[in-house]
Write a protein that binds this DNA or RNA. Structure first.
Lengths: 130, 130
DNA sequence: GATGCTCATGAGAATCATTCTCGCACAGGG
DNA sequence: CCCTGTGCGAGAATGATTCTCATGAGCATC
């Protein structure tokens, strides 16, 4: 079927490695700048392409926030995020009840093929202290 | 303090009236086009300004979806959305448990000033039939 | 190790939503 | 009716993301 032959290149490894070092969501532009500083010269367009591929493969999660998208290395199991709106630090959290709730509510209204997204924003202890 | 002296103009009324006629999320561009068709000539920039004002006043909810923001007339009480990803039809739903859950999880991780967003996407009965 | 077929890359242009600029119009209080 | 300041409109500006296309590099094969 739609086999996706994904080639392993220096640039993609660099993007993934960089994401592993981050502990919060980062925008594509940020990641690009960070790669430059690191010495890994990667084109901006390539960073976008690599991120899209990683999202498709489920290795990275996206967060669309006013105008720009932020990316983060994530575990492949279903989960939600607790994000610091100041520093971007993120904690993965699970909430089994909400899964059932979403399915039930959707069914009640005749919706099928259900998907949901839940994000919690706040100020982490470190940022609140400042 | 920060009093917001909001003037009532033909354009703002038109935007709000149009939103009342829609039963799903619509992008700013869509709303602008619809106003034109209707005969209400309103500048694109004005549509954006009116929408921002309405969001600030809590009369309208925003949904950021790949690239463009969508707006919808909403009740002022806290709620979540069940959105048809095909036709955009939307149902407002409430889930008290998730409110408590969000607060508890945030507290456990030392996060303060908590806020959360939860949206459920699916295909409504009408669209699934097609 | 060389060869070839593709897909990936990179620089800059192109696209698209959104915001800004600024001169003019109008809402609303006096 | 007049004044003042806010809102409007058209087009330019901004900024993120995507596209184009010629060149470079995986990876399988010989």
């Amino acid at each position: 079927m739609t086999e996706a032959p994904r080639r392993q290149t220096r640039q993609r490894s660099a993007v993934l490695a960089l994401l592993d070092d981050q502990d919060g969501f980062r925008t594509a532009q940020d990641l690009h700048a960070l790669l430059r500083e690191r010495g890994d010269a990667v084109g901006l367009a390539t960073v976008y392409r690599a991120l899209q591929a990683l999202v498709d493969d489920g290795l990275v999660d996206v967060l669309r926030n006013e105008g720009e998208a932020a990316y983060r290395r994530c575990s492949p199991v279903h989960h939600h995020h607790l994000v610091c709106r100041s520093c971007g630090r993120t904690v993965e959290v699970a909430d089994p009840p909400v899964e059932r709730w979403a399915a039930r509510v959707a069914a009640e209204h005749g919706f099928a093929d259900v998907q949901h997204q839940l994000e919690v924003f706040g100020t982490c202890a470190a940022c609140a202290a400042r």
